[in-house]
Design a binder for these strands. Structure first.
Lengths: 214, 214
DNA sequence: AATAAAAAGTGGTCAGACCACTTTTGTTAG
DNA sequence: CTAACAAAAGTGGTCTGACCACTTTTTATT
Protein backbone atom coordinates (compact mmCIF):
# COMPACT_ATOMS: atom_id res chain seq x y z
CA UNK A 1 0.00 0.00 0.00
CA UNK A 2 2.97 2.25 0.32
CA UNK A 3 4.31 1.57 -3.13
CA UNK A 4 1.17 1.84 -5.17
CA UNK A 5 2.23 5.42 -5.70
CA UNK A 6 5.65 4.61 -7.00
CA UNK A 7 6.29 8.24 -7.82
CA UNK A 8 6.27 9.52 -4.28
CA UNK A 9 9.64 10.68 -3.17
CA UNK A 10 11.76 8.89 -0.68
CA UNK A 11 11.82 11.72 1.79
CA UNK A 12 8.06 11.93 1.74
CA UNK A 13 7.74 8.21 2.26
CA UNK A 14 10.25 8.52 5.02
CA UNK A 15 8.07 11.05 6.78
CA UNK A 16 5.29 8.52 6.65
CA UNK A 17 7.54 5.70 7.76
CA UNK A 18 8.68 7.84 10.64
CA UNK A 19 5.09 8.28 11.65
CA UNK A 20 4.68 4.51 11.53
CA UNK A 21 7.72 3.91 13.68
CA UNK A 22 6.56 6.47 16.18
CA UNK A 23 3.23 4.73 16.45
CA UNK A 24 4.52 1.17 16.58
CA UNK A 25 7.24 2.03 19.01
CA UNK A 26 4.83 3.94 21.12
CA UNK A 27 7.07 6.97 21.11
CA UNK A 28 5.53 9.81 23.04
CA UNK A 29 6.31 13.53 22.98
CA UNK A 30 9.58 14.01 24.78
CA UNK A 31 10.86 10.56 23.89
CA UNK A 32 13.93 10.00 21.82
CA UNK A 33 13.83 8.83 18.24
CA UNK A 34 16.31 6.36 16.78
CA UNK A 35 19.40 8.02 15.41
CA UNK A 36 19.59 9.13 11.82
CA UNK A 37 22.04 6.39 10.93
CA UNK A 38 19.91 3.71 12.51
CA UNK A 39 16.81 5.01 10.76
CA UNK A 40 18.60 5.07 7.44
CA UNK A 41 19.62 1.46 7.71
CA UNK A 42 16.31 0.38 9.13
CA UNK A 43 14.34 2.03 6.34
CA UNK A 44 16.83 1.03 3.70
CA UNK A 45 17.48 4.56 2.53
CA UNK A 46 20.38 6.96 2.63
CA UNK A 47 21.02 9.09 5.62
CA UNK A 48 20.51 12.20 3.54
CA UNK A 49 16.97 11.18 2.77
CA UNK A 50 16.29 10.54 6.41
CA UNK A 51 17.69 13.95 7.16
CA UNK A 52 15.50 15.64 4.57
CA UNK A 53 12.50 14.04 6.20
CA UNK A 54 13.61 14.91 9.71
CA UNK A 55 14.47 18.48 8.80
CA UNK A 56 11.06 18.92 7.24
CA UNK A 57 9.44 17.63 10.37
CA UNK A 58 11.63 19.89 12.42
CA UNK A 59 10.51 22.93 10.48
CA UNK A 60 6.98 21.85 11.21
CA UNK A 61 7.82 21.65 14.88
CA UNK A 62 7.08 17.96 15.02
CA UNK A 63 10.50 17.10 16.38
CA UNK A 64 13.32 18.77 18.21
CA UNK A 65 16.98 18.16 17.73
CA UNK A 66 20.00 18.56 19.96
CA UNK A 67 23.34 18.30 18.30
CA UNK A 68 25.23 15.42 19.75
CA UNK A 69 22.20 14.57 21.84
CA UNK A 70 19.60 13.14 19.55
CA UNK A 71 16.22 13.72 18.02
CA UNK A 72 13.17 14.00 20.18
CA UNK A 73 9.50 13.89 19.44
CA UNK A 74 8.12 17.22 20.44
CA UNK A 75 4.76 18.35 21.56
CA UNK A 76 2.87 19.25 18.43
CA UNK A 77 1.95 22.51 20.01
CA UNK A 78 5.42 23.95 19.70
CA UNK A 79 5.02 24.82 16.09
CA UNK A 80 7.86 27.08 15.24
CA UNK A 81 6.40 26.94 11.82
CA UNK A 82 4.23 29.81 12.82
CA UNK A 83 7.08 32.18 12.23
CA UNK A 84 8.22 30.53 9.08
CA UNK A 85 4.84 30.46 7.50
CA UNK A 86 3.99 33.88 8.73
CA UNK A 87 6.93 35.18 6.77
CA UNK A 88 5.59 33.62 3.64
CA UNK A 89 1.91 34.12 4.16
CA UNK A 90 1.87 37.52 5.78
CA UNK A 91 2.36 39.56 2.63
CA UNK A 92 -0.66 37.83 1.28
CA UNK A 93 -3.64 38.49 3.47
CA UNK A 94 -5.93 36.21 1.54
CA UNK A 95 -4.20 33.18 2.94
CA UNK A 96 -4.40 34.22 6.53
CA UNK A 97 -8.00 35.21 6.14
CA UNK A 98 -8.88 31.63 5.46
CA UNK A 99 -7.24 30.51 8.63
CA UNK A 100 -9.12 33.10 10.58
CA UNK A 101 -12.51 32.30 9.19
CA UNK A 102 -11.96 28.59 9.49
CA UNK A 103 -11.16 29.06 13.11
CA UNK A 104 -14.34 30.97 13.60
CA UNK A 105 -16.38 28.21 12.06
CA UNK A 106 -15.11 25.80 14.66
CA UNK A 107 -15.60 28.31 17.43
CA UNK A 108 -19.15 29.13 16.47
CA UNK A 109 -20.00 25.48 16.47
CA UNK A 110 -18.47 24.99 19.87
CA UNK A 111 -20.52 27.85 21.22
CA UNK A 112 -23.72 26.32 19.88
CA UNK A 113 -22.83 22.95 21.27
CA UNK A 114 -22.16 24.27 24.70
CA UNK A 115 -25.17 26.54 24.80
CA UNK A 116 -27.49 23.80 23.60
CA UNK A 117 -26.31 21.27 26.13
CA UNK A 118 -27.95 21.62 29.50
CA UNK A 119 -25.08 20.11 31.37
CA UNK A 120 -22.33 21.86 29.50
CA UNK A 121 -23.71 25.35 29.79
CA UNK A 122 -24.21 24.89 33.50
CA UNK A 123 -20.61 24.01 34.01
CA UNK A 124 -18.92 26.03 36.75
CA UNK A 125 -16.14 26.89 34.31
CA UNK A 126 -18.12 29.67 32.71
CA UNK A 127 -19.14 31.08 36.03
CA UNK A 128 -15.57 31.16 37.19
CA UNK A 129 -14.41 32.72 33.96
CA UNK A 130 -17.14 35.31 34.18
CA UNK A 131 -16.08 35.97 37.71
CA UNK A 132 -12.51 36.50 36.66
CA UNK A 133 -13.57 38.95 34.02
CA UNK A 134 -15.59 40.96 36.47
CA UNK A 135 -12.83 40.89 39.00
CA UNK A 136 -10.61 42.46 36.41
CA UNK A 137 -8.27 39.56 36.07
CA UNK A 138 -6.74 39.05 32.70
CA UNK A 139 -8.69 36.51 30.79
CA UNK A 140 -7.38 35.49 27.46
CA UNK A 141 -9.70 35.08 24.58
CA UNK A 142 -7.80 31.97 23.68
CA UNK A 143 -8.43 30.36 27.03
CA UNK A 144 -12.13 30.93 26.91
CA UNK A 145 -12.49 29.59 23.43
CA UNK A 146 -10.30 26.66 24.29
CA UNK A 147 -12.47 25.78 27.23
CA UNK A 148 -15.49 25.69 25.00
CA UNK A 149 -13.87 23.57 22.37
CA UNK A 150 -12.56 21.17 24.96
CA UNK A 151 -16.01 21.01 26.45
CA UNK A 152 -17.49 19.81 23.20
CA UNK A 153 -15.30 16.79 23.60
CA UNK A 154 -14.15 16.44 20.03
CA UNK A 155 -10.42 15.92 20.13
CA UNK A 156 -10.07 16.27 16.41
CA UNK A 157 -11.65 19.67 16.34
CA UNK A 158 -9.49 20.67 19.23
CA UNK A 159 -6.35 19.62 17.43
CA UNK A 160 -7.31 21.39 14.25
CA UNK A 161 -8.18 24.48 16.19
CA UNK A 162 -4.86 24.48 18.00
CA UNK A 163 -3.15 24.18 14.68
CA UNK A 164 -5.01 27.05 13.14
CA UNK A 165 -4.28 29.06 16.22
CA UNK A 166 -0.61 28.70 15.51
CA UNK A 167 -1.14 29.89 11.99
CA UNK A 168 -3.39 32.74 12.83
CA UNK A 169 -1.77 36.09 13.11
CA UNK A 170 -3.74 36.26 16.31
CA UNK A 171 -4.60 39.88 16.73
CA UNK A 172 -5.96 39.30 20.19
CA UNK A 173 -3.46 39.39 22.90
CA UNK A 174 -2.43 41.61 25.68
CA UNK A 175 -4.59 43.08 28.35
CA UNK A 176 -8.32 42.96 28.37
CA UNK A 177 -9.83 46.31 27.58
CA UNK A 178 -12.91 47.66 29.26
CA UNK A 179 -14.76 47.41 26.02
CA UNK A 180 -13.85 43.79 25.69
CA UNK A 181 -15.04 43.04 29.19
CA UNK A 182 -18.53 44.14 28.29
CA UNK A 183 -18.65 41.79 25.35
CA UNK A 184 -17.18 38.98 27.34
CA UNK A 185 -19.69 39.34 30.10
CA UNK A 186 -22.54 39.37 27.69
CA UNK A 187 -21.17 36.39 25.87
CA UNK A 188 -20.50 34.27 28.92
CA UNK A 189 -23.77 34.98 30.59
CA UNK A 190 -25.71 34.14 27.46
CA UNK A 191 -23.73 30.98 27.19
CA UNK A 192 -24.56 30.00 30.74
CA UNK A 193 -28.20 30.67 30.18
CA UNK A 194 -28.20 28.30 27.24
CA UNK A 195 -28.96 30.96 24.66
CA UNK A 196 -26.99 29.92 21.60
CA UNK A 197 -28.28 32.67 19.34
CA UNK A 198 -27.54 35.43 21.81
CA UNK A 199 -24.19 33.98 22.76
CA UNK A 200 -23.25 33.76 19.11
CA UNK A 201 -24.27 37.33 18.56
CA UNK A 202 -22.16 38.52 21.47
CA UNK A 203 -19.29 36.42 20.22
CA UNK A 204 -19.41 37.93 16.75
CA UNK A 205 -19.48 41.43 18.11
CA UNK A 206 -16.68 40.66 20.48
CA UNK A 207 -14.46 39.29 17.76
CA UNK A 208 -15.33 42.04 15.34
CA UNK A 209 -14.50 44.69 17.88
CA UNK A 210 -11.22 43.02 18.65
CA UNK A 211 -10.28 42.83 15.03
CA UNK A 212 -11.07 46.48 14.52
CA UNK A 213 -9.06 47.67 17.50
CA UNK A 214 -5.79 46.85 15.79
CA UNK B 1 19.85 40.26 12.41
CA UNK B 2 20.32 36.89 10.90
CA UNK B 3 23.50 36.04 12.77
CA UNK B 4 22.68 37.29 16.22
CA UNK B 5 21.52 33.74 16.80
CA UNK B 6 24.77 32.11 15.90
CA UNK B 7 23.37 28.73 16.82
CA UNK B 8 20.72 28.65 14.17
CA UNK B 9 21.25 25.85 11.74
CA UNK B 10 22.31 26.29 8.19
CA UNK B 11 19.19 24.81 6.76
CA UNK B 12 17.06 27.16 8.79
CA UNK B 13 19.09 30.11 7.69
CA UNK B 14 18.82 28.84 4.18
CA UNK B 15 15.06 28.88 4.41
CA UNK B 16 15.29 32.53 5.38
CA UNK B 17 17.81 33.25 2.68
CA UNK B 18 15.54 31.61 0.18
CA UNK B 19 12.77 33.87 1.30
CA UNK B 20 15.08 36.82 0.80
CA UNK B 21 16.07 35.73 -2.67
CA UNK B 22 12.45 35.24 -3.59
CA UNK B 23 11.66 38.75 -2.48
CA UNK B 24 14.67 40.46 -4.01
CA UNK B 25 14.35 38.62 -7.24
CA UNK B 26 10.67 39.33 -7.36
CA UNK B 27 9.88 35.68 -7.87
CA UNK B 28 6.16 35.14 -8.05
CA UNK B 29 4.11 31.99 -7.57
CA UNK B 30 4.62 29.85 -10.63
CA UNK B 31 8.07 31.24 -11.32
CA UNK B 32 11.16 29.12 -11.30
CA UNK B 33 13.72 29.21 -8.55
CA UNK B 34 17.45 28.98 -9.18
CA UNK B 35 18.70 25.42 -9.29
CA UNK B 36 19.90 23.68 -6.17
CA UNK B 37 23.48 23.78 -7.32
CA UNK B 38 23.35 27.46 -8.12
CA UNK B 39 21.74 28.23 -4.78
CA UNK B 40 24.35 26.24 -2.94
CA UNK B 41 27.18 28.17 -4.52
CA UNK B 42 25.42 31.48 -4.20
CA UNK B 43 24.72 31.01 -0.52
CA UNK B 44 28.06 29.43 0.14
CA UNK B 45 26.63 26.23 1.56
CA UNK B 46 26.51 22.63 0.54
CA UNK B 47 23.87 21.37 -1.80
CA UNK B 48 22.57 19.02 0.86
CA UNK B 49 21.79 21.95 3.12
CA UNK B 50 19.98 23.68 0.32
CA UNK B 51 18.04 20.51 -0.25
CA UNK B 52 17.08 20.18 3.39
CA UNK B 53 15.72 23.70 3.24
CA UNK B 54 13.91 23.13 -0.04
CA UNK B 55 12.46 19.83 1.09
CA UNK B 56 11.14 21.47 4.22
CA UNK B 57 9.51 24.15 2.18
CA UNK B 58 8.13 21.54 -0.14
CA UNK B 59 6.54 19.68 2.73
CA UNK B 60 4.92 22.94 3.72
CA UNK B 61 3.62 23.33 0.20
CA UNK B 62 5.61 26.49 -0.35
CA UNK B 63 7.33 25.17 -3.44
CA UNK B 64 6.78 22.50 -6.04
CA UNK B 65 9.38 20.39 -7.67
CA UNK B 66 9.59 18.62 -10.98
CA UNK B 67 12.36 16.15 -11.40
CA UNK B 68 14.58 17.28 -14.23
CA UNK B 69 12.47 20.37 -14.58
CA UNK B 70 13.24 22.59 -11.67
CA UNK B 71 11.83 24.09 -8.51
CA UNK B 72 8.88 26.43 -8.68
CA UNK B 73 7.39 28.77 -6.20
CA UNK B 74 3.88 27.60 -5.55
CA UNK B 75 0.81 29.37 -4.42
CA UNK B 76 1.09 29.51 -0.65
CA UNK B 77 -2.58 29.04 -0.39
CA UNK B 78 -2.25 25.39 -1.24
CA UNK B 79 -1.87 24.46 2.37
CA UNK B 80 -0.25 21.13 1.90
CA UNK B 81 0.51 21.32 5.55
CA UNK B 82 -2.97 20.15 6.26
CA UNK B 83 -2.18 16.85 4.66
CA UNK B 84 1.12 16.46 6.40
CA UNK B 85 -0.17 17.24 9.80
CA UNK B 86 -3.11 15.05 9.15
CA UNK B 87 -0.70 12.18 8.87
CA UNK B 88 0.20 12.75 12.46
CA UNK B 89 -3.01 13.98 13.89
CA UNK B 90 -5.74 12.11 12.12
CA UNK B 91 -4.89 8.42 12.39
CA UNK B 92 -5.52 8.37 16.10
CA UNK B 93 -8.92 9.79 15.58
CA UNK B 94 -10.02 7.82 12.57
CA UNK B 95 -12.99 5.64 13.21
CA UNK B 96 -13.74 7.42 16.41
CA UNK B 97 -16.64 9.37 15.04
CA UNK B 98 -14.73 12.58 15.51
CA UNK B 99 -13.99 12.71 11.83
CA UNK B 100 -17.64 12.37 11.03
CA UNK B 101 -18.81 15.06 13.38
CA UNK B 102 -16.04 17.41 12.41
CA UNK B 103 -17.05 17.06 8.82
CA UNK B 104 -20.59 17.91 9.73
CA UNK B 105 -19.49 21.05 11.46
CA UNK B 106 -17.93 22.30 8.27
CA UNK B 107 -20.90 21.22 6.23
CA UNK B 108 -23.42 22.91 8.45
CA UNK B 109 -21.48 26.11 8.23
CA UNK B 110 -21.31 25.90 4.46
CA UNK B 111 -25.06 25.41 4.33
CA UNK B 112 -25.63 28.49 6.44
CA UNK B 113 -23.23 30.52 4.40
CA UNK B 114 -24.88 29.58 1.15
CA UNK B 115 -28.40 30.00 2.41
CA UNK B 116 -27.64 33.38 3.94
CA UNK B 117 -26.03 34.75 0.83
CA UNK B 118 -28.49 36.09 -1.68
CA UNK B 119 -26.23 35.51 -4.61
CA UNK B 120 -24.99 32.11 -3.58
CA UNK B 121 -28.35 30.57 -2.87
CA UNK B 122 -29.66 31.76 -6.20
CA UNK B 123 -26.90 30.03 -8.05
CA UNK B 124 -28.13 27.82 -10.88
CA UNK B 125 -26.07 24.98 -9.47
CA UNK B 126 -28.66 24.08 -6.88
CA UNK B 127 -31.44 24.22 -9.40
CA UNK B 128 -29.60 21.93 -11.71
CA UNK B 129 -28.77 19.54 -8.89
CA UNK B 130 -32.39 19.55 -7.80
CA UNK B 131 -33.39 18.88 -11.34
CA UNK B 132 -31.07 15.92 -11.54
CA UNK B 133 -32.50 14.48 -8.37
CA UNK B 134 -36.03 14.76 -9.65
CA UNK B 135 -35.09 13.31 -12.98
CA UNK B 136 -33.82 10.28 -11.16
CA UNK B 137 -30.22 10.77 -12.03
CA UNK B 138 -27.70 9.62 -9.49
CA UNK B 139 -26.59 12.51 -7.41
CA UNK B 140 -23.93 11.89 -4.88
CA UNK B 141 -24.18 13.36 -1.48
CA UNK B 142 -20.51 14.16 -1.75
CA UNK B 143 -20.96 16.23 -4.86
CA UNK B 144 -23.68 18.34 -3.41
CA UNK B 145 -21.81 19.05 -0.23
CA UNK B 146 -18.71 19.78 -2.20
CA UNK B 147 -20.50 22.32 -4.31
CA UNK B 148 -21.60 24.12 -1.23
CA UNK B 149 -18.21 24.17 0.38
CA UNK B 150 -16.61 25.34 -2.81
CA UNK B 151 -19.22 28.04 -3.03
CA UNK B 152 -18.21 29.43 0.33
CA UNK B 153 -14.87 30.14 -1.20
CA UNK B 154 -12.63 29.08 1.65
CA UNK B 155 -9.95 26.90 0.21
CA UNK B 156 -8.65 25.87 3.58
CA UNK B 157 -11.99 24.56 4.68
CA UNK B 158 -12.31 22.75 1.40
CA UNK B 159 -8.98 21.06 1.86
CA UNK B 160 -9.74 20.03 5.39
CA UNK B 161 -13.09 18.69 4.32
CA UNK B 162 -11.59 16.69 1.48
CA UNK B 163 -9.13 15.23 3.90
CA UNK B 164 -11.74 14.25 6.41
CA UNK B 165 -13.72 12.75 3.59
CA UNK B 166 -10.89 10.40 2.86
CA UNK B 167 -10.66 9.29 6.43
CA UNK B 168 -14.34 9.04 7.02
CA UNK B 169 -15.90 5.61 6.87
CA UNK B 170 -18.27 7.30 4.50
CA UNK B 171 -21.51 5.43 4.83
CA UNK B 172 -23.08 7.26 1.96
CA UNK B 173 -22.46 5.87 -1.42
CA UNK B 174 -24.22 3.94 -4.04
CA UNK B 175 -27.53 4.66 -5.60
CA UNK B 176 -29.91 7.26 -4.38
CA UNK B 177 -32.90 5.73 -2.66
CA UNK B 178 -36.39 7.09 -2.94
CA UNK B 179 -36.29 8.08 0.66
CA UNK B 180 -33.13 10.01 0.14
CA UNK B 181 -34.61 11.87 -2.78
CA UNK B 182 -37.28 13.31 -0.59
CA UNK B 183 -34.77 14.65 1.85
CA UNK B 184 -32.58 15.96 -0.90
CA UNK B 185 -35.41 17.80 -2.56
CA UNK B 186 -36.45 19.39 0.68
CA UNK B 187 -32.91 20.34 1.47
CA UNK B 188 -32.08 21.83 -1.89
CA UNK B 189 -35.26 23.80 -2.24
CA UNK B 190 -34.85 25.28 1.22
CA UNK B 191 -31.33 26.16 0.35
CA UNK B 192 -32.43 27.92 -2.80
CA UNK B 193 -35.04 29.85 -0.94
CA UNK B 194 -32.42 31.13 1.45
CA UNK B 195 -33.82 29.37 4.48
CA UNK B 196 -30.81 28.35 6.51
CA UNK B 197 -32.73 26.91 9.44
CA UNK B 198 -34.98 24.79 7.27
CA UNK B 199 -32.15 23.69 5.06
CA UNK B 200 -30.14 22.69 8.09
CA UNK B 201 -33.04 20.73 9.45
CA UNK B 202 -33.47 18.87 6.20
CA UNK B 203 -29.77 18.24 6.07
CA UNK B 204 -29.68 16.76 9.53
CA UNK B 205 -32.57 14.46 8.80
CA UNK B 206 -31.06 13.47 5.53
CA UNK B 207 -27.75 12.55 7.10
CA UNK B 208 -29.34 10.81 10.04
CA UNK B 209 -31.48 8.71 7.76
CA UNK B 210 -28.49 7.78 5.70
CA UNK B 211 -26.50 6.78 8.72
CA UNK B 212 -29.32 4.60 9.96
CA UNK B 213 -29.84 2.83 6.68
CA UNK B 214 -26.57 0.97 7.09
C1' DA C 1 34.13 6.13 45.32
C1' DA C 2 34.91 10.38 42.98
C1' DT C 3 36.97 12.49 39.31
C1' DA C 4 39.06 13.01 34.96
C1' DA C 5 40.17 11.38 30.51
C1' DA C 6 39.10 8.66 26.56
C1' DA C 7 35.86 6.56 23.52
C1' DA C 8 31.59 6.07 21.35
C1' DG C 9 27.40 8.00 19.75
C1' DT C 10 24.87 11.66 17.37
C1' DG C 11 23.54 15.56 14.73
C1' DG C 12 25.57 19.24 11.16
C1' DT C 13 27.70 19.93 6.97
C1' DC C 14 30.08 19.19 2.81
C1' DA C 15 31.77 16.98 -1.53
C1' DG C 16 31.32 13.84 -5.08
C1' DA C 17 29.22 10.39 -7.58
C1' DC C 18 25.35 8.25 -10.19
C1' DC C 19 20.58 7.99 -11.78
C1' DA C 20 16.17 9.50 -14.02
C1' DC C 21 14.02 12.93 -16.12
C1' DT C 22 13.41 17.41 -18.66
C1' DT C 23 14.94 21.11 -21.37
C1' DT C 24 17.84 22.94 -24.63
C1' DT C 25 20.69 22.62 -28.47
C1' DG C 26 22.35 20.91 -32.68
C1' DT C 27 21.88 18.14 -36.63
C1' DT C 28 19.63 16.09 -40.32
C1' DA C 29 15.96 14.89 -43.59
C1' DG C 30 12.12 16.73 -46.13
C1' DC D 1 13.56 27.09 -44.50
C1' DT D 2 11.09 24.05 -41.60
C1' DA D 3 10.07 19.99 -39.09
C1' DA D 4 11.59 16.01 -36.85
C1' DC D 5 14.90 13.71 -34.47
C1' DA D 6 19.10 12.88 -31.73
C1' DA D 7 22.68 14.49 -28.70
C1' DA D 8 24.00 17.29 -24.96
C1' DA D 9 23.32 20.01 -21.03
C1' DG D 10 20.68 21.05 -17.05
C1' DT D 11 18.15 19.60 -12.92
C1' DG D 12 16.19 17.19 -9.17
C1' DG D 13 16.63 12.45 -6.46
C1' DT D 14 19.47 9.54 -3.92
C1' DC D 15 23.40 7.37 -1.89
C1' DT D 16 28.05 7.10 0.16
C1' DG D 17 31.77 8.63 2.70
C1' DA D 18 34.12 11.92 5.04
C1' DC D 19 34.87 15.47 8.65
C1' DC D 20 33.39 18.51 12.47
C1' DA D 21 31.17 19.83 16.95
C1' DC D 22 28.83 18.39 20.61
C1' DT D 23 26.89 15.04 24.08
C1' DT D 24 26.74 10.77 26.39
C1' DT D 25 28.80 6.76 27.95
C1' DT D 26 32.60 4.13 29.22
C1' DT D 27 37.03 3.52 31.04
C1' DA D 28 41.06 4.60 33.58
C1' DT D 29 43.25 7.07 37.28
C1' DT D 30 43.64 8.81 41.70
Amino acid sequence: MTENQSKSKVFIETVNDLKGIIQEEGIKPGDKLPSERVLAERLGVGRSSVREALRSMELLGLIQTRQGGGTYLSDYRNHQLVEVLAQFILPDEAGSGYVFSTQRILERDAICMVALDENLCKSPVWESLLHNVIEGQTVMREDIIREMIVATNNRLVYKIWLLLNQYALRPYQGTTTENEKVHLERFLSNLRMGQPALALEAYEEWIDTLAKER
